[in-house]
Amino acid sequence: MFRSLFLFDVTFWLYLAAVVLYFGYLVASKRALRPAYAGHPAFSEEDDGWAQPLGQLATWVTFCGLLVNGLALGTRAYERMQLSGTFAPWSNQFEAMSYVSFAIIAGYLFLELKYGIKAIGAFVVSVGFIAMGAASLLPYRYQVAEPLVPALNSYWIYIHVSITLTSYAAFAMAGGLGVMYLLKERAERRGRRGTIYETFPSLEKIDELGYKSVMIGFPLLAFGVILGAMWANYAWGGYWSWDPKETWSLIVWLIYGAYIHARMNRGWEGHRAALYQVFGFGMVVFCFWGVNFLLSGLHAYA
């Protein structure tokens, strides 16, 4: 138990370091911007020199964080196996949060690899870091691995929970991108030049990536909810019982369904879409946390 908790701790610090580095990268790139737009030559050497190494370091630290995060989950899986013969390292709130941050960071690194946009890291890695941080703020008794209650002791937990949590990660990414969009947009509207926001990718790009994230989360959530229904049908004799957690997953899914269709021809791009992504992520957070702690139901085991 302590081995995995230690690794989760290390993950937390690595992600913190990554967030700091990404913000450092933003600041450095901004400083590199300034002389260019002011029109006279670079006025100091280090302006140009910092951004690239910081960005590189940020990526590597994030990658190390991801490795340790994965290692921590693996260790926890091993500990669970010793304890009760099941291994799913997402069997309580703490483990689920750690898994979500793993998925967010993995998704981000993939995005960075594919599109080479580092500025996004400051926002998306932050979301992953916050997820990890919130997990480590949970009381100790939520962090340790208790043996599973009979209802959860099933192979369905491997697939249903991991897929649902992965969809949350995609929505988290969309939320982070939404915030990024809104910040950049505000800066542009005020006509301020030479700010951090200028180092962001174009509004259009942020918008499109946000949509992409939602379009990854949406099918995954559909799949996750349906797997949950199958599990319920197998375990409780009814695929849908309007339990608060499953209802909230449906609500979240409908909210994103509306987003997808609103985007299609009602011009919900840009500002509105970004706002909506942030709102949708708020709903995901409620579905994930609020329901477990505020509403009662079958899923409130943790």
Binding site: W242, P244, T247, I251, G257, H261, A262, R266
Partner: peptide, 24 residues
């Protein structure tokens, strides 16, 4: 119309929310 689709989805979401806030 897509407008109706969006309206219905949001309506379902809101009604379901009511159902989770008030115990059934």
């Amino acid at each position: 119309s897509l407008k109706l689709a969006i309206f219905l989805m949001i309506t379902l979401a809101i009604l379901s929310t009511v159902g989770t806030i008030i115990q059934q």
